[in-house]
Design a binder for these strands. Sequence first.
DNA 1: GCTCAACAGATGAATGCTCAACTACATTGG
DNA 2: CCAATGTAGTTGAGCATTCATCTGTTGAGC
Lengths: 169, 169
Amino acid sequence: MDHTRWLDADEQRTWRAFLTANRLVLDRIERQLSQDSGMPLAYYEILVRLSEAPGHTLRMSTLASTALSSRSRLSHAVARLEEAGWVRRRACPTDRRGALAELTPEGMAVLEAAAPGHVESVRATLFDHLSPGQQAALREIVETLIGALSETPEWPAAQDATCATDARR
Amino acid sequence: MDHTRWLDADEQRTWRAFLTANRLVLDRIERQLSQDSGMPLAYYEILVRLSEAPGHTLRMSTLASTALSSRSRLSHAVARLEEAGWVRRRACPTDRRGALAELTPEGMAVLEAAAPGHVESVRATLFDHLSPGQQAALREIVETLIGALSETPEWPAAQDATCATDARR
DNA sequence: GCTCAACAGATGAATGCTCAACTACATTGG
DNA sequence: CCAATGTAGTTGAGCATTCATCTGTTGAGC
């Protein structure tokens, strides 16, 4: 019994174009950032989030849920950023198992140096090619998706399969 | 002189939502495929392309430019797919430096087994949340981007910096 | 015909990400 | 107050991708 709801021709085309466009856009952004500032987009985003936080400091878990998801990824990333001297780790005063990440002045300087080139490439890659109507439509679409997908966990950021072991008891 | 064309509030919001939505969508698709079929999306796409080719065979470079870009990536990927037995490498009869990739019957079977779950997850992740109008708008937007970005090489798939050494002669 | 640049692929090191443990602390229920 | 469970974060192995480099082949110009 094959009750698969296959994609029709239009959907196929949309899906493949979606994948291709994403790759084209993100590859460019990522490449520009890597070449000009020596950091991947994910690290840039971490610095941005920290720069916007009060005291340039954020709890690890907060930072993880803000656009980054996986805790493991953040740990590795912050470890590298700390080596580079852009970020410093501090103990959380209220919760002794917590950790705070703080943007250093050097990190702030690097971020400020990277920002213009990055913004320019975002503009040149994405916005310059879309009409105001398309930009509005794009925003509506992606916000719809975020609403739909972040409220339906299914596998939210729950990377720990701790549940799997006890679920059938 | 700071002539950076910064993003205004609307653009900021669109860009961040774009990044978030992409991550949400692709993470789900990728996770479903990895869990249920043990392969990343990139490999699945290679199998799809081969399955659609005459004789289930495609030249490596053709396969690379079809949705995959980087030649190096394809080499590594096909090496893994060959280990798994989904793909076989053959010599190109007309060009002795070329190589052909051929989908094996086992690879075809694996692809057919993986397809329903993948399609279902694409539907559940993307299409089910978008109105027909949004789907049409999305397609128009991503096709616009593809048109704009693939015609402007800048760094198309030209990963080889051979030009850099002679450009200034 | 030879030379030299372009092309097709492969390869290895380095990097970032995922997954599955694991440690340490906190919190809840009895 | 103590056990059990949940939470915060780290760590290391495995894998995919990237970059730079390298080999071998083709093709164009002299």
